[in-house]
């Protein structure tokens, strides 16, 4: 089921077209990954879908035009987690997670409390729920932000680079959790910079370059060597993974810096 669809989506600053026009749709239960070099417009795409930048084109949320939904309805349906999320003043983990319930109301109803508790449990934050978020490690803080996102009971999740500066173990944990949320019925759009991780955890990939989609499809087919070379300037290392041959690493192209030979 298509939860969020965009047609001819475009973002322009002054006269410069930064993104699009492009089409995409987010399906329930599926994780869509967005990869591309720096400046490709990945974060802009996310912010446009979240309604944070003015954009041209036609967007549909849950079968109704996006503009028809008021701010609160949109906020209930779409959850957004920016890159490197900050916390401006000391909050406990529980208070941070509770902020995720803002689109739904006060945060004090039984429904709110159970959503908050569920999110805290799901991310293993129970033991540190009363601690100041600013004193936590990077991984714990990211889990707290994810719990905030999860507590919002959103149908659509827009997450920008959730694995930046996380330990490898946490990176896998975070992506695994997001995929679980999608399997439970949400549609997730993840901006990722780590290609092997994107290939492993996403059901479909969009490759963005200079604001346009240059390839889309299943990870194995999308991230073939031709694309890796032309868009990223690297070569893929493949190995058997989860019963298929998957991208497990990248290497520099022969004749370029960093080549092991």
């Amino acid at each position: 089921m298509t939860l969020l669809a965009a047609r001819d989506l475009g973002v322009a600053y002054d006269t410069r077209q930064v993104l699009g026009p492009l089409d995409l749709s987010l399906e329930a239960g599926r994780v869509l990954g967005v990869v591309g070099p720096n400046g490709a417009g990945k974060s802009t795409l996310l912010r446009a879908l979240a309604g944070l930048v003015p954009c041209a084109g036609h967007c549909t949320l849950l079968d109704a035009p996006l503009a028809r939904h008021d701010d609160r309805a949109r906020a209930r349906a779409i959850g957004y987690l920016p890159q490197m999320p900050q916390v401006a003043w000391p909050l406990t983990v529980r208070e941070l997670v509770a902020l995720g319930r803002l689109p739904h109301g006060d945060g004090r109803t039984p429904a709110d409390r159970s959503a908050i508790d569920a999110a805290i449990d799901a991310l293993g934050l129970g033991p540190i729920a009363a601690r100041n978020v600013l004193t936590l490690s990077g991984g714990e803080r990211m889990r707290a932000h994810l719990a905030r996102l999860a507590a919002g009971s959103h149908r659509v999740l827009l997450v920008d680079e959730p694995t930046v500066s996380l330990d490898p173990g946490y990176q896998l944990e975070v992506l695994g959790y997001l995929r679980r949320l999608a399997r439970d019925g949400a549609a997730a759009l993840l901006v990722l910079h780590d290609l092997p991780l994107a290939a492993r955890y996403c059901d479909e990939l969009l490759v963005l370059e200079a604001g346009r989609i240059v390839r889309r499809g299943a990870p194995a087919a999308t991230l073939d060597d031709a694309l890796l070379a032309s868009v990223f300037g690297v070569r893929g290392i493949r190995a058997p993974l989860d019963g298929m041959t998957g991208l497990v690493g990248i290497s520099s192209l022969p004749g370029t810096e960093g080549h092991p030979a």
Binding site: A50, A75, I78, A88, L96
Partner: peptide, 12 residues
């Protein structure tokens, strides 16, 4: 507390 973008995404 979460920045302007996140606040707006929360319906504020």
């Amino acid at each position: 507390a979460l920045g302007e973008d996140t606040a707006r995404s929360l319906g504020v």
